[in-house]
Each structure stands twice: as structure tokens, then as C-alpha cells.
Design a protein around this nucleic acid. Structure first.
Length: 434
RNA sequence: CGGGGCGUGGCGCAGCCUGGUAGCGCGCUUGUUUUGGGUACAAGAGGCCCCCGGUUCGAAUCCGGGCGCCCCGACCA
């Protein structure tokens, strides 16, 4: 992609409304534009990040045995009356009336709808277990939207729902999702820690929140340093491995300030105590038969008797993750994207636009990296290009100046560490490719 | 939902108190200059001053109403 032809409206100055780092940087780096309070348009670079995160989430959900589908954003009020949540949900739910005076709503979550779908399509115990999921926009009419996409009203969420025949099955689904989540966050390139949580609005009795560590996080978190060493990508879904993994996640201490237990905390050796701030980017729940019973969803068991499935639900805030990752990964100059989700893996900086030698090298690099690179081919000074590349946070920068170009050398800069290497073009390419 | 604040070119702001035909910096366009960390000079373009109503010879400015947005708190993927 050529920067001169792209729709990436970077800003030199910070818009007045943006208070926290991620919001400022998302606006300045041209990822989003606010369209209304808590409602954002995703511009090309922002959408690339969103899509890359969604793709990792999707791959890990699939690996855990979940199946993707897509439910609508608009739902019927009647569905919510079945579970009793239409009245219970309150003003956060955006209620809509159509031309025939039918009551609709913009979905804040999908337990009712997915239960209705399974109720219509699964009749026998042989049809379960199932873990359907989708990645869809949600709307919650927050009293006070803030922090950019971290607390928007419209947000993109992955929500999965598990349906099992009994408690043991439900617990297994829960454990699979826990592993899928840890694998997902690790692949994205951030540290996330599961913490025991209240079940809130959704109801139930087993739940974990996933917090990623960021100095500006909304909640205080306390955890055992051993979480930092975990490697979920090395864990598979075989029963024994899954069991061990789940135990290791749930027996170590981790809590938000709300649930902090001073007694248990005291038992941890001082050198393993970690305190910080966290941003919640996901939550998983087991809630049993709450919806299957209230919505009269049963399947016929092996003995011919009705059986109400055991359910759980599993959310990841995809759009929130974009903001949360930036909170965790930025410096004074701008964003420091993890490699896996950067909008562009590499930025190419032509320090002397119009020069035949630098131009030729840049064009060839551009041809090689294609959509994975952003070629700064603007008629700008070197300083401006450096500043924008740092702002946009490309993991790698290939800096092509007249000095080195004459000798076939370019400068490779690693955004995260600031390391620079003077290299022949071919070696720079190889290094970026890893 | 309680408390506070703000709406003036794309962005950041001044002007408003003490009405008199709108200004600064950045960005944008053109030219010259510069050429490795947001360059300098010059010439330009761009504004229903959030909306409606009122007061007045005259309203960005005063008065009334509305809408939008932000911040603090309570609440939340």
C-alpha cells in the first residue's frame, strides 16, 4: 500500500475529546473516526487490525471445536420476553419499533437467539454437544461511553455458546474455551490473565474474566508471577493436557481489586506477587439450564426423557481489544503493534522521494511485501516520515536513504526495541520475514 | 443518572465579559527552498461562528429554548 494513495488520515495534533492514550493514538494514527458518542467508523488501517484480531479469534475458536455462524444485529422483543430479560435488561438495551409497531431491539448479546436456534434445530441428545459462535456488532446504550473503543456503545464481539447434555460436558466446554482464550491472547501478542469473576447480568455460578495488563487499566489486578511463564500454544485439547492446563490457570492466585482476598494473597511468596492494572477483554460463564429451561429448549435423551441442555457463554471484545492492546503497547512516539495484528507488518520510508536509487529500492520492497507494507512515498521530509512511522507503529521500518542506498544498504528498525541494523536489501527482507 | 465544561475552516485554539461585517497556529493548494528526526519564505483556497426563536439599526458576542460532544462520579463486554 502506498501512503500517498491511502485513506489513513493521521493527525499531528490530538483531538480535544481524547483523554487516554489508546483513544488519542487511534485517532492520530487514522484508525477510527468518531461518528456519534460511543460509535466509531473504522478506517482502512483500523479495520485491518480488527480483521486480523477477528481472524486469530476465529482460528482458535475453530481449533477448540466451536463452529462459526452469523446471527443478526436486530432481534425480536418476543424472544427476550421468553427468558424474562426484556424487562430485566433495562435502559442499556436499545429498543426499536418498526413501521408495523413491532418491538425490536439491537442485540446487546445473543443467549436468547442462539437458544432459539438450537431449540429449533437439535432434537436428540445425539445432536449435542455444540459450541456455536459468531463475531458480530453489539449495541449497549452505555450511560456514559468513554475511552474511545474501550467503552463504546457499538462494539464488535465474539460470542460463543456451549450446549451440553450434562454438567461434566458443560465443564469440559468451559475448559476448552479457557484454553482457546489463552491461546488467542498469546497469539495476538499480549499477556492476559484469567480471574475469577461474578456472573452479573447473565447469571450462573462459574465465570472468569480475562484481563490484559496495561498501566492505564480500569481495574487493579493481583496475580501470581507464574502466570507470566505460561505457554498456552504448547497445550492441545487432549483430555489430560486440557485438565492440567485448566488446573494451572485456576489454582494460581489472580484477582481484581473487587475480589482480592488478602488471606490468599498473603500465602504467596513475596517475589511472586504482582500488582498492576488490567483491562477486561473477555469473560466466560457457565450458567447451567437458565435459558434452556426458561425458553423450554430440551432434547430427547437416550432413555426417551426430556433433557434440558447445560449452557455457557464466552465473549471476547474484539473492538475493545484494539484499544486495550494499544494501552498495553505504546510509547511517547506512538503505537507499538505486536507483529501478529499490526495493520502493516512493515513500513517503507523513502527518505528522498524522487531519487532514482532510493525509489528503485523502495518500489522493489513494495512489490515484495505488497499489502503487508505501507510505503511512505509522500513528498515529505525524512523527519515527518520517521514521526509518522513511529506513530502508526509498524513492527518493522525499512529506511531507505540516499547515503546507504548508493551501496545497496538500507536501515532496518525494530519499532518495539528501537534497534537499528544497517543491512543489504536482501538481508533486511529476510529479517522482516523472520 | 447526579455534578462540571465545551460547541468558531480538516485539527488545536483566541475573540464573547464591554454587540459594529471573524482571527492565530498546524494542516491543505501553488512556487521557491530544504533533503536522515514533524524545514523556511512567499502567495492562495477554505467558515450556515451547533440549531431555532427573541432583543437591537446591527448578534459569534446579549436573552430564551433545543440539539450535540467531553470530563468526574455511580454502572458496565
Amino acid at each position: 500500500m502506498r501512503l500517498s494513495q491511502s485513506l489513513i488520515p493521521t493527525l499531528k495534533e490530538t483531538p480535544a475529546e481524547a483523554q487516554i492514550a489508546s483513544h488519542r493514538l487511534m485517532l492520530r494514527a487514522g484508525l477510527v473516526r468518531q461518528m456519534a458518542s460511543g460509535i466509531y467508523a473504522w478506517l482502512p488501517a483500523g479495520l485491518k487490525v480488527l480483521n486480523k484480531i477477528a481472524q486469530i479469534v476465529r482460528e482458535e475458536q475453530d481449533a477448540a471445536g466451536a463452529q462459526e455462524l452469523l446471527m443478526p444485529t436486530i432481534q425480536s422483543a418476543d424472544l427476550w420476553r421468553e427468558s424474562g430479560r426484556y424487562d430485566a435488561y433495562g435502559k442499556e438495551m436499545l429498543r426499536i419499533t418498526d413501521r408495523h409497531e413491532r418491538e425490536l431491539l439491537y442485540g446487546p448479546t445473543n443467549e436468547e437467539m442462539i437458544t432459539a436456534i438450537l431449540r429449533d434445530t437439535t432434537k436428540s441428545y445425539r445432536d449435542l454437544p455444540q459450541i456455536p459462535y459468531h463475531i458480530q456488532w453489539k449495541f449497549r446504550d452505555e450511560v456514559r461511553p468513554r475511552f474511545g473503543v474501550l467503552r463504546g456503545r457499538e462494539f464488535l464481539m465474539k460470542d460463543a455458546y456451549s450446549f451440553d447434555l450434562d454438567y461434566a460436558g458443560a465443564l469440559l466446554s468451559y475448559k476448552k474455551m479457557m484454553l482457546a482464550y489463552m491461546r488467542t491472547f498469546q497469539r495476538i501478542g499480549i499477556t492476559a490473565i484469567p480471574m475469577r469473576a461474578d456472573t452479573g447480568q447473565i447469571g450462573g455460578d462459574l465465570s472468569h474474566e480475562f484481563h490484559i495488563l496495561a498501566p492505564t487499566g480500569e481495574s487493579g489486578v493481583f496475580y501470581d508471577a507464574e502466570f507470566e511463564a505460561g505457554d498456552a500454544l504448547g497445550v492441545g485439547y487432549e483430555p489430560a493436557a486440557l485438565e492440567d492446563f485448566y488446573d494451572s490457570m485456576t489454582t494460581k492466585y489472580a484477582a481484581t481489586d473487587e475480589k482480592h482476598d488478602l488471606g490468599a494473597w498473603a500465602a504467596i511468596p513475596d517475589e511472586r506477587k504482582r500488582e498492576g492494572r488490567g483491562i477486561e477483554v473477555g469473560q466466560i460463564f457457565y450458567f447451567g439450564k437458565k435459558y434452556s429451561e426458561s425458553m423450554n429448549y430440551s432434547v430427547i435423551g437416550p432413555d426417551g426423557a426430556k433433557l434440558f441442555p447445560e449452557m455457557g457463554s464466552y465473549g471476547i471484545g474484539v473492538s475493545r481489544l484494539v484499544g486495550a492492546i494499544i494501552e498495553a503497547r505504546h510509547d511517547e512516539a506512538g503505537i507499538v503493534w505486536p507483529d501478529a495484528i499490526a495493520p502493516f507488518r512493515v513500513g517503507i520510508l523513502n527518505l528522498r522521494q524522487g531519487d532514482a536509487v532510493t525509489g528503485e529500492i523502495c518500489e522493489s520492497l513494495h512489490a515484495i511485501f505488497g499489502a503487508d507494507c505501507l510505503y511512505d512515498d509522500r513528498e515529505e521530509r525524512a523527519g515527518a516520515k520517521f514521526a509518522e512511522a513511529d506513530l502508526m507503529g509498524h513492527p518493522w521500518q525499512i529506511i531507505v536513504g540516499p547515503r546507504g542506498a548508493a551501496n545497496g544498504q538500507v536501515e532496518l528498525k525494530r519499532r518495539a526495541t528501537g534497534e537499528r541494523f544497517e543491512l543489504p536489501v536482501a538481508e533486511a527482507i529476510a529479517k522482516v520475514r523472520g
